[in-house]
Amino acid sequence: MSEIKKIKNLKDFSTSADRFEGANLLCPGCAHSIIVREVLNATNDDLILSASTGCLEVCTAVYPYTSWDASWVHIGFENGSTAVAGAEAMHKALKTKGRLKQDRDPKFVSFAGDGASYDIGFQWISGCFERGHNMMHVVLDNEVYANTGGQRSSSTPIGSSATTSPAGSHSYGEKRNKKDMIAIMAAHGSPYVAQVAPNKWKNMVKAIQQGLNAEGPTFINAMSACTTEWKFAPEDTIAISDLATDSHIFPLYEIIDGKQLNITYRPKNVLPVDEYLAAQGRFKHLFKDQYKFMIKEWQDRVDANWEYLQRREEAKV
């Protein structure tokens, strides 16, 4: 087990040497690179990385450039997690046989968007977790297929307008609610599963370090506010993320060994969901008289979910 990087405060954190480079082609104000930076800077270990097809992959590996300063591979849409799992299995085999040229213990991390994790790559991730590879899967959850023009994914929340579930006179947009991926991955018996947001950097770094140092497959769901598809101004990325975490819409919690649930961030001033919804273009139709009932539905659901999380935390089951 390698040493955990000591990060006491933001000044300590800012001495990190970034292993993710600028002049990638992500949109101005994209939260993806904020998350990637926080993940990579949370450790000084060698890293074996992969990215599934999605915004992050197409924007950071545009031939002839790469934005990654660590070993990084991209294969397909679905198998980013499996690529890393394969590398991990090889590393383990070589180590057991004593054939490693250098005795180094890299960390294995796969990045994928919500499309590549919740829908298309789901079977592969499930396989990795079932086989128990010592790796971490990070989801950059922007709740939509942003790379291909904003189609709905199974992470798209109810009432959101996406290009394949547009809002209009007959529809309030997406009809189904977000899939509870955290619970699904915790049910695989993963030693560490957490939901994080880039605006709470300390929480995030702690979760990443705990995930990287756990034995077995770990899962991180990171909220990634998408300026293009959520339709807000690029400079508001952090403000929107704050609204999401402070209104309990995106609660930050962790599940250890598939059982113990801990809420890792409790907002002091809980905001109503209206503020979060009103700040984004994808929800603007909900404020028409016709669809106003959806806002109440949102508030009730968010409150019920928070209540559920608190009860689960208390019950320790």
Partner: peptide, 30 residues
């Protein structure tokens, strides 16, 4: 600004913010 910059354009050395990397800044305003 260093931790929330998406483009690694805030240059911090020895816990001090010393400037902006204008080659990589996309002008998002975060």
């Amino acid at each position: 600004c260093w931790v929330y910059c998406p483009d690694i354009s805030i240059i911090s050395r020895d816990k001090k913010m010393i400037g902006i990397d204008m080659d990589h800044c996309k002008g998002c305003g975060i």
